[in-house]
């Protein structure tokens, strides 16, 4: 890792100002993605702005709109929040399935959605629940936030401050872990709202995406059986030594069925 300036921000404004001021500064949240990348010298920022000391970014709050989770709330805090688990268990389950305990002790929601790893868990839940990503500048719907491989709608000088997850009627997240990394080889989040059903898939493609034909099928009949006969095309899916595109396509179907079953459980 190469040297950089280290700055511990005191508030969101402070961090945002700092970020805007330097072209090559990066935000440091849990560091579980950024620090390994710096060790591999994939990035060489001039400055790291540590968000760890900003209290306003931490915590889970429930309202009628849903669950407001601060950007630097760690995975373990999300998984362990009793009210959240009662209200929207799928978020807790997804948080619990991330990495290992030490990663969960440090890694944060904001870092995960901002990073938009194609195999990450939170993006699937955020997209599946139709969350709103709140930044220091604006509110972005999950549908337009996750743009592509490691790419989001965040502009320069923009940072995630909170994610608002609406309350579904039911939801489930089924994850098939990559045997090496334990990220999602395929993960499917299924959520039923009064307004309709959302199905989001992670791990299978270059970025998290929605499966419209699954959504339609489930809207008519929210049961695993409703997905019988639907298949997923392997075209454009990830293909690597852990899973061929065809196998991933197959797993999307299996995980979707299991997610529905979890939602109904």
């Amino acid at each position: 890792m190469r040297e950089f300036d280290y700055y511990r921000a005191g508030s969101v404004r402070d961090a945002a100002k700092r970020l805007a001021a330097s072209g090559n500064a990066m935000l440091l949240a849990g560091g579980m993605t950024l620090l390994p990348a710096l060790k591999m010298r994939l990035n060489e920022p001039s400055e790291l702005i540590d968000l760890g000391g900003i209290d306003e970014l931490k915590g889970v709050k429930l309202s009628r709109k849903g669950a407001h989770i601060g950007a630097t709330t760690t995975h373990v805090e999300v998984a362990g929040n009793v009210e959240l688990r009662a209200a929207i268990p799928v978020i807790s389950q997804a948080a619990e399935s991330i990495g290992d305990p030490q990663v969960r002790n440090r890694g944060t929601l904001g870092g995960s959605v901002a990073n938009n790893d194609p195999a990450a868990d939170y993006p699937a839940v955020a997209l599946g629940l139709g969350a709103t990503i709140i930044t220091n500048k604006r509110k972005i719907s999950a549908d337009s936030f996750f743009v592509g491989l490691f790419e989001t709608a965040l502009g320069t000088g923009e940072m995630v401050t909170e994610v608002l997850f609406p309350l579904p009627q039911r939801a489930g997240y089924a994850k098939f872990p990559n045997p090496a990394t334990r990220y999602a080889l395929v993960g499917v989040c299924v959520a039923q709202f009064k307004s309709g059903v959302r199905v989001a898939v992670t791990g299978a493609g270059p970025s998290v995406y929605r499966l419209e034909d699954f959504e339609e099928a489930l809207e008519g009949d929210f049961s695993s059986d409703a997905l019988d006969g639907l298949s997923v095309s392997a075209a454009n899916l990830n293909d690597d030594m852990h899973a061929s595109a065809e196998y991933r396509a197959h797993l999307v179907g299996v995980m979707a069925r299991r997610a529905v079953a979890m939602a109904l459980d």
């Binding site: 560091g31 620090l35 390994p36 060790k39 790291l48 290992d100 990663v103 990394t181």
Partner: peptide, 23 residues
Amino acid sequence: DTSQCGACVVHVDGASVKSCTML
């Protein structure tokens, strides 16, 4: 060097963390 093996685990404020993945 990829934050996976856990040989470096210590406690920070009482919680276990990977000391190779903290500054």
